[in-house]
Each structure stands twice: as structure tokens, then as C-alpha cells.
Nucleic acid binder design. Structure first.
Lengths: 249, 249
DNA sequence: GATTTAAATAATCTCGAGAATATTTGGAAG
DNA sequence: CTTCCAAATATTCTCGAGATTATTTAAATC
């Protein structure tokens, strides 16, 4: 996580414009890891990657060290860096802790939220609704949906008065994004995700903590249940575009 | 946090022997920040620190990047690194989240703990008891007490089956250690910390979740209440040995 | 005196190359 | 065929120096 953004919000969605090559490489690497371009468990060789991302070895090492704070990368002295593994056990654990932390944050947010919070929530829900109306599953649309989905969930808990809680949720949310690409494979049709969001939004606006918590729990659990149906084998499989890609900045 | 140790345990107490200069500098820097040798909010100038810790600029930058994962250091592009600030608001927030997470972990640990868990807990409690019997407050004893206290708390939740929960607790525990040096100043006499530990141990061994949780909550809250009595001014004051110190490795 | 501008100073950021370490390859022995 | 060992290769780790950017100092103007 970019140090300066650590406590900015819950989900560290829009990092401010990167000012250094380290920050650039960090963002590009993070995107590629979350998208599965670098396979979970695979080695991240500085010697090769510095060419792909167009920076020097020291710069890339620093970016990799930053990624450790997101638990997306692990390393071992004198042996290098690896992409953190994913597994059914892992997503189940992430889900369990998201349930605990996000419901707690939602509770606090509903309790503390003022008019401005409501206004931002209405806006975020509107943006999400618009993109969910179009059942377009192109890559570009998918990324837009991800951004707006994150924006909505961030708006929900933005009035939570615990910085640490928002920070910890941010770590878990970023982790869960790694599993999102498996949501498109199966049984997506059966799910009415907009209905889930709608119920959640409605309950939050009515300040109904119990109903809102239940809706959030259902939302998180439903997501998990779909991923759960993916075989452990498919979980390890890389996405369509296998090739490693360059830095775009 | 050292990448390889991320998921090793709850509190990342004993890192394995450092194999690189980066890891060495990381450990030394972390200790100095936790101990307040580098004042909260103060700037960490790579140009100066590389001399103090006996490493090159790149190596030190990497160590600082690693410290971001512990939320002990923040940075801003082109402006450098700072020690994360501390405040009453911060420790209150840390406390709030420790209460939430540690009681949850304790609950799971008591539920899942086997004979081996009990054995390790008995051993950890014994070690802690021995050092608490001697009311010695020298610096060396204090550090020993800190290690054994961490060992006891780690043993308590070691049977928790959620790696992520243990990891998140580790982050918060490390943060709370930054405030420990303010526990020695006032009203220490009034507190019977061994009685708190004893009650906690007893309840855990009897598998009494409610009593154990209550004891843990009381323990965490009592610690917070003492720090709360420290003035915000004293909180910002550096410890006795003001001078910056060199790397020991 | 307060504000603005420009030079001087200090620090960060970045890369390339060399030393230290790990991994792989190839061959010999059992 | 398997195991062990040594050479060859590949990669990590580390530092120093230069380019870029921020900060401070000093002078000049209002």
C-alpha cells in the first residue's frame, strides 16, 4: 500500500497521482497481481521484471517491498520475492474476517453518519446502479463496475469513526479482489447482485443496523459461495491473457 | 513486517535470524521506533540514517518500505519518510480494535485448542509468572517481561484457526507496544498485572469463553486507561536516552 | 515589517555495476 | 537408476554517484 495513502480511506481506491517511479511500479505490479497476470505462488524475479516495468533493480525491489504491506507479495532473505498464494482456505478466512470487520464498521458508520454521508452514499449507489443496469461484461465495463462497487462499499463505511478498522478492511478488500476474476466463470446468471446492493442501500439509508448488517453479510457470503464452487485447480489457473505485460505509465 | 514472517504467528515475536542487511536495518529501525528513539512524527532522513545504521541509501530505503507494512512509517513521494504519529485518539482506536479482534481470536482458540495448546499456554504462563514475581524494573528485565508477555498473549490465541485474524492482531499488537513505555510513569503500583494474567490464564484453561473474554477485555482496557492518564504533551516527549543509536547487528 | 523572488543548499530518487549467495547443470561414483 | 559433488550459471543483495526535486537562505520589492 502506498504509505501516504494508508489511512486515507477504507479501500485505497484512487491513489493520488504517482510522483515517483517506485509508486508507478508499485501500482502496475499490484494491478497485475490482483488480475492474476502474475500467477499466485509464482516467483517475481527482479532481474526479469525490471525490464518489463522499465525501472532499475533497486526501484523494483522497493516497489516489491511496498507490496508486502498489502500481503500480495512475500519474500525470503537471499531467495527473492513471490506472489502470495491463493486457496479456498484463504478466501474462506478472508471472508470470515470481512464479515466480522465490515459489519462492525457498517454499524459504526450508520450510527455516526450525517447528512453528507447520506448524500455520498446516494451518489455512490446511483453510479453503481447505472453501470449494473447495463449487463455488459466487457473488460472495460468490468473494471468500471469494480471501481464503482468499491466506491459504494467505501461510502457505506466512510462514516465509521475508526481509522484502524477502515485500514484493516482495506487490506482484506484488496485481497478479496484477487478472487473476483473467478466470479465471471459460473453461476453468475443466478445471482441478482443489484438486488443485494439495493437491499443494503435501502437498509443503510433507513438506519436499520440489523437489516443492513444482514444484507452485507449475505452479500459477502454469496460472493464467497460462488468462488467456493470453483475447483482448487481452476483457482491456480492463470487468466486468458497469459503474457506478462509492461508498465503503462 | 518481514515478509517471510507475515503469517508465522500472531505477534511476529521472534523473527528468524536476519540474513540480509535489509532485514538487519529493518529490525534495528523497528526497535528504535517502537522504543521512541525516533520520535513519533519525526522525519527519517535516508541521508543521515544510512550512516547511523551502517548501510547504503538503497538498502535503508528498502528497510523503510518494509516498515510501512507495520504502519510504523509513512512516506510521501519526493518528500521522504516519517515516523507514524501517536496520540490519545490513536491508542483509543487501537484498543477498540484489539478488543474486537483479540476476543474473537480467543474464542476460536479456546474452542479449537488441543492438549498441545494447553501445554504451551501453561509453559508461557509459567515463564511470565517467574519474571513478574521479581518486581525488577531495570531496562533489561523490562524487555524480558515484554517478550514473555507477548509470548503469553500469543500462546492464548495460537489455536485460533484464522491466519488473517492472527495477522491483523499482530499489526495492532506491534502498534500498542509503542505506547508501552508510558505505562511505567504513573499509577503502576495500583495495578496488579499478574492478577489480570492469572485470571485470564485460569479462565482459558477451564475453557470458559465468557470469563476469559471478560478478563482479556479488562486487561486491554486497564492498559489503555493508564496511558489515557498520560498527558498528550508527555505522549510526544522522547524517552530518556534522546540520542539516536547505531545498528547493533 | 511582510511578502515575493532567486540562488544556494539539502535531500530524495534512480540507475548501473560488482560482490555475495542460491540454483541448476553435468558428470562421477555407488 | 539414484545419490552425491563440483563447476557453471543465474539471481539477489549492496553500494556509490549523478540527476531530479524539495527546502532553506538571502536579497529585493512593496
Amino acid at each position: 500500500m502506498l504509505p501516504s495513502q494508508k489511512f486515507s480511506g477504507a479501500f485505497t481506491a484512487d491513489e493520488e497521482v504517482p510522483r515517483t517511479l517506485v509508486e508507478n511500479a508499485y501500482l502496475a505490479l499490484r494491478r497485475d497481481i490482483v488480475d492474476g497476470k502474475h500467477a499466485p505462488g509464482s516467483r517475481l524475479r527482479v532481474e526479469h521484471l525490471k525490464g518489463d516495468y522499465g525501472v532499475g533493480a533497486g526501484t523494483l525491489r522497493e516497489a516489491l517491498s511496498l507490496l508486502v504491506s498489502d500481503a500480495l507479495v512475500v519474500s525470503e532473505g537471499q531467495r527473492g520475492f513471490w506472489v502470495t498464494t491463493i486457496s479456498h482456505e484463504d478466501i474462506e478466512d478472508i471472508t470470515r474476517n470481512r464479515l466480522l470487520l465490515e459489519t462492525e464498521a457498517l454499524r459504526a458508520s450508520i450510527k455516526n453518519g450525517d447528512d453528507e454521508w447520506e448524500a455520498e452514499l446516494v451518489a455512490a449507489f446511483h453510479r453503481l446502479t447505472r453501470v449494473e443496469e447495463k449487463l455488459n461484461t466487457t473488460v472495460a465495463r468490468m473494471r468500471e463496475w469494480e471501481d464503482r462497487n468499491r466506491g459504494f462499499h467505501e461510502a457505506l463505511i466512510s462514516a465509521c469513526n475508526s481509522r484502524w478498522l477502515r485500514y484493516l478492511i482495506g487490506i482484506l478488500y484488496r485481497q478479496s479482489e484477487r478472487y473476483r476474476r473467478f466470479l465471471l466463470t459460473s453461476s453468475r446468471a443466478k445471482r441478482d447482485i443489484h438486488a443485494e446492493h439495493s437491499e443494503l442501500f435501502d437498509a443503510a439509508m433507513k438506519r436499520d443496523v440489523r437489516r443492513a448488517s444482514a444484507a452485507l453479510e449475505l452479500h459477502i457470503m454469496t460472493t464467497f459461495e460462488i468462488i467456493r464452487q470453483t475447483s482448487e485447480e481452476d483457482l491456480q489457473r492463470p487468466p486468458k491473457g497469459v503474457r506478462r505485460n509492461n508498465v503503462s505509465a
